[in-house]
Structures are given as structure tokens and as C-alpha cells.
Design a protein around this nucleic acid. Sequence first.
DNA 1: CCGTCCTATGGATGAAGATG
DNA 2: CATCTTCATCCATAGGACGG
Length: 227
Amino acid sequence: MLDRATSEQAVFDALRAETQRLGFEHCAYGLRLAVPVSNPKVITLNDYPSSWQARYLEAGYLHIDPSVRHGRQSQSPLVWTDTMFASARQMWDEARDHGLRVGWAQSSLDGFGVGGMLTLSRSHEPLTARELLDKESAMRWLVQAAHLSLSRLMKPCYAVQPETPLTPRELEVLKWTADGKTAPDIGDILGISVPTVNFHIKNVVHKMKAANKTAAVVQALMSGLLN
DNA sequence: CCGTCCTATGGATGAAGATG
DNA sequence: CATCTTCATCCATAGGACGG
């Protein structure tokens, strides 16, 4: 179901169904793309009370939410506690006022720098170690499935494919450039002249519609072209 | 901290050999 | 012929090293 979803809404509907089956009232899923690097695009899907959604957005809680920070650094499961929200006291108080008291978050990270995090929550019934153990594999599967489906749907947004495929030579020059080699270095390595190296780099930059070779290398890396 | 100098980088244009 | 690859020259600018 989830892996064949053809829209964000379909993915989210499937997520909600699983969430309820696992005994939670609400689910939230956030996908953080790798680009633009200076301000990565974040897509959020959730069924929280609309007043809380509005408050979260208005207060910019995404930037201070300790669970989000945890999700970016670690793929270990996270259960909401008073101590982990110590640095965001106000946010935690408001969340509980909106019926969000018990929560469980699990993040994922793929090879293209795209991160995802699923949070399941409910208003009562604290999470026991037993419940976590019983549901952990389902949770991990759900996170992976959501990540795969959504990143596939979002692929055009971050995987900038060149309009025409890169030639073998262009790819080769790009890889050495990604390793920090200068044009003279690459000329030595490949046994060609410096102008030729620059010619290939220029063509890559043009094909990738990048501002310069630095951006072209990053785009190629994010798109998996250098693998 | 500032100015100078050199190198690397980025971009434009032109030309030519190899290959299928 | 179209495409890929190669090489050259010219010019502007950015960045690093160095001395004052």
C-alpha cells in the first residue's frame, strides 16, 4: 500500500491507518531534503489538532524542537520525556495542552542526505518498555516505507538530473573535482591538458544548470551521479 | 590589519581529430 | 554528419601567501 502510493496524501493516509493500528491517535511525518543546502526544504505531514499545527508553525518550533534535533543526529528511537524537552519548556507545555503527551519518534537517513522522521503520539497511556519492544519493528518498517515513498515522490525536487547525460569523461573529471583536485591535478591524472579539463567542467556546469562547479559537484553528489 | 602579487578558477570562443 | 574529445588563447575575478 504505502510503497505504491502515488501522492503525498496517499502516503499520509496509509501512515494514519498504520498509526491507529499501532494504538496511537496522531502521526506526524517530516521529510528533510538535502537541497538547497543553505536552507533545506522540509515537508511535513501530520494530523495534529489544527490549533497546534498553527501554533507550531507560527512560533517556529520546528527550529527548536528537541525531538527534531535528535532525529537529525541519531536514528535511535526517541520517547518524549520531560528531560528531553527541558530546553523547550514552553513548547512542551503547549503540546500537552493540545493533547500531545505521549510520543515516540523514529528517524531515517538515506545516502543522498535526505532525512525523515515519523512521530506517533497519543494523549494517554504512557509507553511501556514492553510496548516499545513489541512495536519497534513495525515502527522501523513504517519509517523506511514512508521515507522511500515520499523521497521517490520528491525526487524531482532534489535529484537534479542533467538535461543530457554526462559523458564518461565529464563524469571522470567531476569525480576528481569532488575530491578537491584542481584542473592541473586532473590534467596530470588523466593525461590531458588543463584547458581540456576546464572544458569538461564547463560542460558539466552547463548540463547541471549549476551556478558554478562547486554547486555542480554538490548536485551531482546529492543525485547519486558520482556513485 | 592592509595592500600587493601570484595562482586558481570561471567563462567565452575557435578549431580540429576520432568515432560510429 | 553528429557527438565526443582534445587543445589553445584571452580576460576577469577570487583567494591565499607574504611583507609592511
